[in-house]
Design a protein around this nucleic acid. Sequence first.
RNA 1: GCCUAGGUAGCUUAGCGGUAAAGCGCGUCCUUGGUAAGGACGAGAGCCCGGGUUCAAAUCCCGGCCUAGGCUCCA
Length: 612
Amino acid sequence: MRLLFIHSDHLEFEVTEEIGDLAEHEGVPLDGRMEDCAVTFITVESADADDPDAVVTNAATEIRDVTGQLQTSRVVLYPYAHLSDDLAPPDVAKAVMQALEADIGTDHEVLRAPFGWYKAFEVRCKGHPLSELSRHVSGHDEEEEAPESTADREPSEWHIMTPDGELHDAVGAKSDVSDDMQAFIGDEVEDVQASPGEEPPHLAIMRDKELVGYDDMSDAGNLRWYPRGKLVRDCLMDWVDDLIVDYGGMPVETPIMYDLGVRAIDEHAGKFGERQYRFESGDRRMMLRFAACFGQFSIMHDMYITENDLPLRIYEMSTYSFRREQRGEVVGLKRQRAFTMPDMHTATRDMDQAREELERQAKLSLSTADDLGVNYEPAIRMTRQFFDENEAWVQELVADFDKPSLIEVLPTRHHYWSAKVDFAVIDSLGRPMENPTVQIDVESAERFGIEYHAGEETYHPPILHYSPSGSIERVTGAILETAAKQEIPRFPTWLSPTQVRFVPVRPDLHGEACEVMADQLEEADIRADIDDRDESVGKRIAGAETDWVPYYIVVGDREVEGDTLGVNIRAEDDELEMTLDALIEHLEEELDAFPRRSRYLPMHLSEHPQFV
RNA sequence: GCCUAGGUAGCUUAGCGGUAAAGCGCGUCCUUGGUAAGGACGAGAGCCCGGGUUCAAAUCCCGGCCUAGGCUCCA
């Protein structure tokens, strides 16, 4: 709701013409005048329809605040549609105006102008500094969200469950768990602030290595990827796609924008308050998706699903999803306003199948930690009721993870999920980054009209939300944070923009030999380049080190004339004599399970432009 | 969104009322190199944007934007 206050010597109005069939005829005067009053022009907006009572209460508080400041007890409530372009339905607006009159009327003299009329009016503003004020009121801030906020919720119970099924007090168990889990407990349970004031190291790395940057011409939290970073990103996306298709997910692609005029969209979106990008397109109000739920639910809604189709797994790499996070929450690769999330939704027959799928999907994520070179700490969060009914299953889950797991038991359900598993990477400052997550959604099937058919009956399936890796940005961040903790910071070889680099001692004499070998590597789908810049050998080796090239080879007369190469293995800080074929064989083995992409930058470093 | 700190060359930073600096990168030349950075010279700056104070503002003040930290938030 928008409010415009004018502290006036007087206001006078009379109706001129009815607007459609909206006009109010009873309970309000069709003309009137009030002296020395706070004139309040009011626009009721679409979001107010979610909870009109709360909006009225909040608006009344604002009006009392203003009349208090203006030291007046006379108020004009004047419906005025022109303060916003996002109006509530007329019947809602009318009801809000009436309720507001009833509320304010208890301690003010109120003149309310009728809704649904063109009106002539005259107003004289007093002109002092406080005489013109505008306010924005919503149903959420003061009335709804605040009491719902975590601070006022009944606190969760926290435990550590060990793989043997024993439940321990979370804080008490700290001495028996890994450093990462200790940091996780510190952050989640004890509210410890790790490394306060320090900037996460991945920020410097993403710039220095020419991976990712900010763009001043866009909004905060919208990143741009340079070729080296784009290659890492694309490889990660290929990898997740392969993982999920192999698992049984069926890829789709769905729209990124949705019409807020559709009831289910508006209801669902309304729950997320201000955290969306919204815009007008022609005469439609649209929003950008904040996950792939909408599009995939829409597909499921339109499908004829039978019992035999379950579990039905619909998957999408959501380039992009948008969340207009608060400015202070947007940080580098940890949180953005536009991000890419692999998102799968699985419709299941019943809670038994939902639990079974959740377990398999969670295990799948956990098993990928080695591929990414990161460590995951598990957390299982659920309602008291879910835990009481499923304790044995939770024990089985933790035994399956084979890692002590953080257990959060929420006294009541606050979210759409009743149970949720997530995996956190602990960054180099000791702060958790939540990455993969899988949740059991017990609400959405009904809201979106998703059903499956079994015999004569139809049922709403429990639906799992699953992000097998977490957002691609956050995965990249987690890999960089993990690198920052390593003695020799590096990417896994399959993600390295350059996998093998040749350093010709004399580019004019040894460059050609390098090219022949680089071509041979590329034929085997290995990314190779040649540092042919006119720089000293020492400097170019330093370059291979700072570019985190996993394998690099100095090529001079000895190599050109001999059979073997001195291959520097960066991760091991070691040099091994081997033939090119042996190197290719070694890399084939190392890269076997991973996506292969060609170089994004020219083979010769002398041709690389500077992006940063 | 609120609070704190910062925004100076392509990058990282110094300067903090009085002629704008350094390192890296870039260009030219010398060096023709063997496992972590050879030398010389040179180009390159509406000092974030808009107002104000002052004889004089990158420097002080106010507002805005951006970045980070903290709070809150993370469906």
